[in-house]
């Protein structure tokens, strides 16, 4: 090509000169690449949860009306939460189990707050494939261990919501929560 020859003919052959000139081109392209990559950040980050969604990631629940033996379902982060008021018999049954024999070894105390062992708060999401287990409402099948039963693939949870039988790999997840008072819980 005429211009290329021309280029070579007129440019002084100095090694350093060529290297310096290449450096400018490489630097320009690199900086443009950095700019392009930086532009990707907002394009990707916009898909993360927005501020209003994050603001709802914390909810206050009034638990004063839940009688022993009863449970309620509430919604946290668009997922069901089971809040269960355990009876002394259920607590006893949960504590009687040999922890070492469990698939996901945890004691009831691990899964509740100190002095609040009667309040079992878990996500209502089966750890197998994400169905909502039965057992939180009156008259539902609580499975063979008197806790929760997932109808999708037959996972049985005990009164501490630990997996005892069926395909689920782990116990029902306990979310982060704290007691604001004896009757109010803040989840999240």
């Amino acid at each position: 090509m005429a211009t290329v020859e021309h280029h070579e003919a007129t440019a002084p052959a100095g090694e350093d000169g060529l290297r310096r000139r290449d450096f400018i081109n490489i630097a320009a392209v690199s900086v443009a690449g950095v700019g392009g990559a930086a532009l990707l950040y907002p394009l990707v980050n916009q898909m993360n949860p927005s501020a209003d969604v994050l603001a709802l990631a914390q909810i206050d629940v009034d638990i004063s009306s839940i009688q022993p033996g009863q449970a309620i379902k509430t919604i946290w982060r668009k997922q069901p939460i089971f809040i269960r008021h355990l009876t002394p018999q259920e607590i006893e049954a949960a504590n009687a189990v040999d922890v070492g024999s469990l698939r996901d070894p945890q004691t009831l105390a691990d899964r509740t707050k100190p002095d609040k062992a009667q309040w079992l708060i878990t996500l209502g999401v089966c750890t197998h494939l994400g169905c909502v287990p039965l057992g939180a409402s009156e008259g539902e099948n609580r499975g063979e261990y008197g806790g929760y039963f997932c109808p999708c693939h037959g996972s049985h949870y005990d009164t501490a919501a630990r997996i005892r039988k069926g395909p689920a790999p782990t116990n029902l997840e306990v979310p982060e929560y704290e007691f604001m008072s004896d009757t109010a819980v803040r989840i999240g």
Binding site: T3, H6, H7, T10, A11, R21, N25, A28, V29
Partner: peptide, 11 residues
Amino acid sequence: YLSYRNIWAAA
């Protein structure tokens, strides 16, 4: 701009 001038230097 420097890169542009550089590339066009001969031409």
